[in-house]
Write a protein that binds this DNA or RNA. Structure first.
Lengths: 196, 196
DNA sequence: CCCTCCAACTTGTCATTGACAAGATATGCG
DNA sequence: CGCATATCTTGTCAATGACAAGTTGGAGGG
């Protein structure tokens, strides 16, 4: 299909794929329009015709990320073979942490501060993020904000350099994070009386 | 003292101050070595002699931020006039949220992903971040990781664009965040039996 | 008081990058 | 076959970080 014929044929998709690879290996700073073009063997200005601006490209990547994120969370709404736990909130929380673990580059892009405000207001992007939020509301009820904060914070701290300096600490942290999530859900369930 | 004499006299301090202002108004992207120089009326290469690299300047700013952050948290260890609550964890959590609210530019710099790894490993910076972590451990005991995740996550979601699209939602969110913190501390206290 | 030296600052330059303009090329359609 | 259009290329510009080499001012020794 999308042969490497002259008019590249599927440059838009190819650009998104190449961008992801660049981000995975070199971080967001490595995502240069010219680097993408070079990786694909096209001229330095070719990407502009599909993504008029670097910010637009970042937005498109984030949108893709949110779609996969929402899908992953929705899949956790019912027990699966990978996580047959009966606690809905715990399952969704685990799915959240798993996605962020396996796609740190997406996660940074989605929730970091380097997305332009225009990109954030894209209808498609907002649609996917709403889907994710809906899953959290289903799983955590009125405590959705708190639950989101917990998983979001755990993700950030796990990725960040302050809690785990050495590499061994980093390894043990996976365990700690998983336990913290369990502690949270159980303590929250113990507090599920309508207190306010 | 630091008159605007030719040899600027206190350029290092002046650069840090000007950098903070630039970040406050225009975000991290607006922090350009040349913009700083222009703001201070010096030549475009003057900052290099005090901060050999933009990354080093960012590191110095982050270090300053962590110092103020740790100091703010330590001050919350005992009841004050601003927060006379008797619950230690709640006081520290509020101080955390307050600092991040009043210094979002510092917070993004400190916990965002745009700090170079070399900057993060600066002894002074690690020292200050350890102080902050120590306060959290004092306040939350074995659940320090979970507590940190909660406040960190709340900060991020409050700042981010996904939970509050409109400006009115954003206003009501302050309230929601404060309530979520209370819900968390009380549910955690209810679960303080040594369960594992 | 002057001379020397050094740190602080300036001027000039280069490579990288995003963005744009204008031209070239292939693909599809009549 | 010929034209129109989307797609891609080449060329260029401004902004920026980084570096090199020159300039200035003032501090300290004689």
């Amino acid at each position: 299909m999308s042969k490497a014929r002259y008019h590249h044929g599927d440059l838009k998709h190819a650009i998104l794929e190449a961008s992801l690879e660049l981000i995975k290996t070199g971080g967001l700073e490595a995502l240069t329009l010219r680097a993408v073009a070079g990786k694909l063997g096209v001229s330095h200005a070719a990407p502009i015709h599909h993504f008029p601006t670097r910010a637009v490209l970042l937005g498109a990547l984030a949108e893709q990320g949110f779609e996969r994120f929402a899908t992953a969370l929705e899949a956790a709404l019912e027990p699966s073979t990978t996580d047959p736990d009966h606690d809905l909130l715990l399952r969704v929380g685990r799915a959240y942490l798993t996605f962020a673990s396996e796609n740190p580059q997406y996660y940074r892009l989605m929730f970091g501060a380097e997305l332009s405000t225009e990109a954030v207001q894209t209808p498609a992007l907002r649609d996917h993020s709403s889907r994710a939020l809906a899953v959290l509301k289903t799983a955590a009820g009125p405590n959705a904000l708190l639950a989101w904060a917990v998983v979001h914070g755990l993700v950030q701290l796990r990725v960040g350099p302050y809690l785990c300096a050495t590499e061994t600490e980093r390894a043990s942290m996976e365990q700690q994070v998983a336990e913290a999530l369990v502690t949270f859900t159980s303590s929250l369930h113990g507090n599920f009386r309508s207190d306010s």
